[in-house]
Design a protein around this nucleic acid. Structure first.
Length: 563
RNA sequence: CGAGGUGUAGCGCAGCUUGGUAGCGCACUUGAUUUGGGAUCAAGGGGCCGCAGGUUCGAAUCCUGUCACCUCGACCA
């Protein structure tokens, strides 16, 4: 490809609205143009990068015997109702109506359609296991799209779905797919770690996320310093099996009311009582499908709403609005506590059960109770809090460490979460009918590209790993008005094309400095410079990764490139 | 939705405090000189100063409202 026939609109300056470095480079290298919040035009270089990544994914999917399909982007309400997800998916799902007022969603994910396919074609144990996938645009009305293509409202997801006769078969295939994922990312030059995760809106029995560790990542992951335990920080179990302290169950009530004028937050209470945050009990009001509930955690902890949501089994869970709390007339925001509270269900973290003589809100403006114990109120105990750095590993008990990461893939053992609801059965060898079990496996393609860049860049620009570089070689003619240079460049260009090397010939009449700067920004693994040495049949080969510069004959240079 | 910030040419920004001809750099057009690290000179083109109202003789600038975008928290690939 000649640069004069191609479109790479590079920018000298960083766009003002982008912070993350990989995104800065993607915009500067002319890969992306923002159209609206969370929506991007993919320019030719981005398309090439997508194709390269997709090719790697397709290769591994074929090896895992998964068949590529393409599903409609619009999914009917009917289909989503069949699994209950028309309602389960909240505001995040784009919805629309056709001219006959039939409702549709713009697909945020595609389990139902995959089931629809399997329902049609999987009739017998002989058809199993059955696995299909697609690489397609997904749409999610994100609350806050961020970091360019890292979290967009339209993005490309490779989503695979598998169907099995038994749990064992699912487990085996899941393991195979898990390994395929690790191989994909390793082929792409990415360092990743698989962590156990929450199953979120997908549901199911178990899931893992494939994470790229990155300082600019949006997710906290928790990794054991000693064993192989790794988990999304949200999914780390806390205090399971901990016994509620017997000492805490006093027979006499020993708490007393204390006036605490305008002292509401834990920080203010710490100052007011001159105690540490762990001596308090934090009560947070939640709106669970329109019902008010209260969650209790130790003052220095945070309520994990994912865990709470699971305990409650509700669809929508958010912090209750102050209006909602006021309307209940049971308590007062800032002075919420479990003692003497009637008509509101209270959920307490395991840790609270082990606390003694602590301070809670008195459900009355400007008052708290001091010296409260778990015996003073009724609550349902569960694991409700976020884990914190340094906590004992849930597997081996040794210390955990936290780091930032980007979620690139997510794999799920869905089990019968969907197949039961949809009544998906197959004929067994014995002649009976059995319900299918299911798994699903996703990869965010743009994120993957962004992470490759994130893990392979320097202060000048991107440094593409050879196997997925949009172009392997940037052939630069220093002076396009010099006939010797043009002639030699042409020979090299033809030879590289004959050898099936992806080469971009920068035959534009831009100044050499800007050509070099672009080459470094775009991150071609090799830069082949035809300049002042052309007369003596010499070219310069620069290896982007190492910065190594070699004066060579054209033949020697080509030999190194195709090696 | 909460907290902070920003909207002026395709991109990056100044001007706003103290109202009075809308500016700079990059990019773009034309010409010349340049050609191994983002050239120089000369001449040009391009603006509903986010939008709507208000104050004023006069508003990019002051006031009110509104919209959009960015960063950080709750969502997720």
């Amino acid at each position: 490809m000649k640069r004069s026939n191609y479109f790479i609109p590079t920018l000298k300056e960083k766009p003002s609205d982008i912070e993350q470095q990989s995104q800065v480079y993607m915009f500067r290298a002319g890969m992306l143009k923002k159209q609206a919040n969370g929506l991007f035009v993919y320019l030719p270089l981005m398309q090439r990068a997508m194709e390269k990544v997709n090719a790697v994914i397709k290769k591994h999917m074929a090896e895992a015997k998964s068949f590529e399909c393409k599903f409609p982007i619009l999914v009917s309400k009917e289909l989503l109702d069949s699994s209950g997800r028309w309602n389960a998916f909240g505001k995040e799902m784009f919805r629309l109506k056709d001219r006959s007022e039939n409702e549709f969603a713009i697909s945020p994910t595609n389990e139902e359609t995959a089931c629809f396919v399997a329902q049609t074609y999987v009739k017998s144990y002989k058809d199993l296991p059955f696995s299909i996938y697609q690489i397609q645009s997904k749409h999610r009305d994100e609350i806050s799209p961020r970091n360019g293509v890292m979290r967009a409202r339209e993005f490309t997801m490779k989503d695979a779905y598998s169907f099995h006769a038994s749990e064992e078969c699912l487990t085996e295939y899941y393991g195979k797919m898990r390994q395929a994922y690790l191989n994909i990312f390793s082929d792409l030059g990415l360092k990743v770690v698989a962590v156990s995760a929450d199953t979120g809106a997908m549901g199911g029995s178990g899931s893992e996320e494939i994470m790229a560790i990155s300082d600019s990542g949006e997710t906290d992951i928790c990794v054991c310093s000693s064993c192989d335990y790794a988990s999304n920080s949200e999914a780390v179990p806390c205090g399971i099996g901990k016994k509620i302290s017997k000492k805490a169950f006093k027979t006499v009530i020993s708490y007393k009311k204390v006036e605490t004028p305008r002292v509401k937050t834990i920080e203010e209470l710490v100052v007011f009582f001159n105690k540490s945050a762990s001596d308090f009990c934090k009560a947070v009001c939640f709106n669970a499908d329109g019902k008010l509930v209260i969650a209790l955690v130790r003052g220095d902890r945070e309520v994990n709403d994912i865990k709470l949501k699971k305990v409650l089994g509700c669809n929508e869970l958010e912090i209750a609005s102050p209006e909602m709390v006021a309307k209940s007339k049971k308590t007062v925001v800032g002075f919420v506590g479990p003692v003497g509270l009637k008509g509101i269900k209270i959920y307490a973290d395991f840790e609270v059960g082990a606390m003694q003589d602590f301070i809670v809100g008195a459900n009355e403006k400007d008052y708290h109770f001091d010296g409260v114990n778990p015996s003073d109120f009724k609550a349902e105990y569960a694991d409700l809090r976020f884990a914190v750095e340094g906590e004992p590993c849930p597997k081996c008990g040794i210390k955990t460490n936290f780091s930032k990461a980007t979620e690139l893939g997510h794999i799920f053992m869905l089990g019968r979460r969907y197949t039961d609801k949809l009544g998906m059965q197959f004929a067994t060898k014995e002649g009976g009918l059995k319900t299918l079990t299911m798994g699903c496996y996703g990869i965010g393609v743009e994120r993957t590209i962004a992470s490759i860049i994130e893990q392979h860049m320097d202060d000048k620009g991107m440094v593409w790993p050879q196997q997925i570089a949009p172009f392997l070689v940037d052939l630069i003619t220093v002076d396009v008005n010099n006939e010797e240079q043009i002639a030699l460049s042409k020979t090299l260009y033809n030879e590289l094309n004959n050898q099936n090397v992806n080469v971009l010939w920068d035959d534009t009449d831009a100044r050499p400095g800007s050509k070099f700067a672009d080459a470094e920004l775009i991150g071609f693994p090799y830069r082949l410079v035809v300049g002042r040495g052309a007369g003596e049949n010499k070219v310069e080969l620069v290896i982007r990764k190492t910065g190594e510069k070699l004066e060579l004959s054209p033949e020697e240079a080509i030999k190194i490139i195709i090696k």
